[in-house]
Structure formats: structure tokens, C-alpha cells
């Protein structure tokens, strides 16, 4: 199967910030690909370049076989995007937003109404479709935005934090729909998210990027396996990390004031030794490694001063004050 997206040394520099640094990624047709990374890692910038709204400083990419520099029009015709920043029109109704989108993307008149009804139903906005968007809640705007991205059935869909600010029910529905789109339409989906659970559930492959560079790229399963075992968390009186390191199968030890986190292969068999090595244990928790552990282990624990773009709530506040 061919590649839906290929980047070649794709680079974007903003004055002295290397937002995207010689990125080489191949995304297969029909794949759900996750782009993860801390705030300011360069996810949105990468997507903006692939959508042809930002010009790379260096390098290029192809989307659906079209070069983003030489054939931007062809690229645009074949993609859909849900921006990280809300971009639905406040002063129109939900339905009007969709009708305009359908016209811009040349959705044939004969199926327009049907498609619009379908996506409205999917995101649960049927009953509010004729209200002005300025009367929507933050989550409702997000849902409308998603509906819009899906409306013209693009071959490649970019979702920049699609479920930011959505309630668990809606998130679940959206996940199912994303999966269904990818399966039944062979749609390629590139998704960024800060919810590891979402990435784990949806993505066939994940790239963790930081400071514009790929740190690691693999399937969620392989990434979790590479952590090297289960996570064992002990609530305990201060303990000597060296004693844990001697135990077979323990690959990582993190000791804090009153708890210890160990990464342990075959944790069940090692539990006795671990308990013997600790102080007075109050509680033990064993869980399989999650993508969160993967993410933290590759990108570190500290929060960067870089804050990236504001959350949806601030954005909506801003929109309101601006109008």
C-alpha cells in the first residue's frame, strides 16, 4: 500500500526557534497516525505545513502524492482539517457553517443535505443546528468543527487535538467515528493529542516529537513494551534505591519522599524481593505500562516554560471579547 504522506527533511524555523527540525515521516494510506509531544513540540506547525497554510523553511512533503510546494491546490482538495484553534463562524448558525463548507469543498448539491444531516447527527448537534454558534458551549463548537472536517469525506484528515474539552460520552462517539472512517473509507488520519489514552486507543502508529525532532516512532504496543515491564508503585517509608536496582528484572527506579516507582519485568515473580527491599510498605499498586509512562520517559517530567497555544476556554473568552 502506498504512502498517504511523506515528509522530506521538512523544516520550519521561526526567527531563532526551530519549530520543526528536518522531519522525515512516512504515513501509510489508511493509517491512523498519532503525533505526540509536549507543548511547543512542533505538532501544529507540522500540520500547518502539510495543509499548505504555512510554507516550510526547508524540505518538502507529499500529501496524497501531491507536493505541498508545487501542487498546493491538489493537496487542499484532498484533505480535511480540524484546527487546534476554534475556527467556526460565530455569527452563523451551525448548519450555515456546514453549508458554506460544503460549497467551498464542492460537495455535490445532491448529497449535501444528507451529508450535513449525517455529521450533525454524529456530533449530536441536530437540535441546535439552527442556533447561532455564538450561543454554543465550548464543547459544542468543537463538535461542530469536527463535523465540518468530516463533511467532505477527505482522503487525509488532520485532527489537531480533536477532543480537547469534550465530555467523555462525546469523546467516545468521536473515537468510534474516527475508527469507522479509517476502516470503511480507508481515510488516513493524522492526529495530535495530549490524551495518551486517546492515542493508545486510536493510533496504529505514534511518533513522539520534541523540539521539532522525532524522538521515537512505533506502534503503541511496541512503545509500551519498550518501557521494560510493569509499573510497581509502593507507598513506603524512605528506601535505598540501590537495593531495588539489584533485583533482577528491575530496569528503572524512581524514589521520592514517601513512594517508589519501579519498572519491573515479570513483576508478579519479583514482588517478594521488592517488598523485602522496601521499608514499611503501606500500599502496593501494580499496573501495566501505559502510554503516559512512555511519554514521560521520552520527554521528561518537568513542565517547559514554553506554554504553546492557549486552551479552548481562553480562546472562546477571547473570541467573545473581540466581537
Amino acid at each position: 500500500m502506498g504512502n498517504a504522506i511523506e515528509t522530506f527533511e521538512l523544516t520550519k524555523r521561526f526567527k531563532n526557534i526551530m519549530a520543526v527540525d528536518h522531519l522525515n515521516i512516512k504515513i501509510k494510506q489508511g493509517e491512523i497516525f498519532g503525533l505526540l509531544g509536549p507543548n511547543g513540540a512542533g505538532k501544529t506547525t507540522t500540520i500547518s505545513m502539510l495543509c499548505t497554510i504555512l510554507r516550510p523553511t526547508e524540505g518538502t512533503a507529499t500529501v496524497n502524492g501531491f507536493d505541498i510546494l508545487k501542487e498546493p491546490d491538489e493537496v487542499r482538495k484532498s484533505i480535511g482539517i480540524v484546527f487546534q484553534q476554534p475556527s467556526v463562524d460565530d455569527i452563523l448558525t451551525g448548519r450555515e457553517n456546514l453549508v458554506l463548507h460544503a460549497m467551498w469543498y464542492g460537495v455535490p448539491k445532491a448529497i449535501r443535505r444528507e451529508r450535513i444531516d449525517e455529521v450533525l447527527k454524529l456530533v449530536g448537534l441536530e437540535s441546535r443546528q439552527n442556533s447561532l454558534v455564538k450561543t454554543y458551549s465550548g464543547g459544542m463548537r468543537r463538535r461542530l468543527e469536527l463535523a465540518r472536517g468530516l463533511l467532505h469525506l477527505p482522503k487525509v484528515l488532520f485532527l489537531d487535538e480533536p477532543t480537547l474539552g469534550l465530555d467523555p460520552q462525546t469523546r467516545e462517539v468521536i473515537w468510534e467515528y474516527i475508527e469507522q472512517m479509517s476502516r470503511s473509507r480507508d481515510m488516513t488520519i493524522v492526529l495530535t493529542t495530549h490524551y495518551m489514552e486517546e492515542a493508545d486507543r486510536l493510533c496504529n502508529r505514534i511518533a513522539i516529537i520534541d523540539q521539532g525532532k522525532i524522538i521515537v516512532m512505533d506502534t503503541p504496543e511496541a512503545l509500551k513494551a519498550a518501557v521494560g515491564g510493569d509499573m510497581v508503585c509502593l507507598r513506603t517509608t524512605p528506601a535505598d534505591p540501590e537495593r531495588f536496582r539489584k533485583i533482577e528484572g528491575v530496569s528503572k527506579v524512581e524514589v521520592q519522599e514517601d513512594y517508589v516507582v519501579l519498572t519491573v519485568r515479570n513483576s508478579g515473580e519479583r514482588l517478594q524481593e521488592i517488598l523485602a527491599a522496601s521499608g514499611k510498605v503501606e500500599s502496593v499498586q501494580i499496573r501495566p505500562a501505559s502510554l503516559d509512562d512512555v511519554f514521560i520517559s521520552y520527554t521528561g517530567k518537568e513542565i517547559r516554560p514554553e506554554t504553546g497555544e492557549g486552551g479552548i476556554a481562553q480562546r472562546i473568552m477571547r473570541q467573545r471579547t473581540l466581537r
Binding site: I53, K77, S87, D89, H101, W104, Y105, R148
Partner: peptide, 18 residues
């Protein structure tokens, strides 16, 4: 300018329109 500021211009600019 307002359209750009509140990000609704982006939707138009990314659409396959000349």
C-alpha cells in the same frame, strides 16, 4: 483583520479555493 484574529479566515484559506 478580525476574521484573521478570531481564526475564521484560516478555514477559508485552507479550502480548495483560488
Amino acid at each position: 483583520i478580525w476574521d484573521r484574529k478570531i481564526d475564521i479566515l484560516k478555514e477559508v484559506l485552507v479550502a480548495p479555493l483560488s
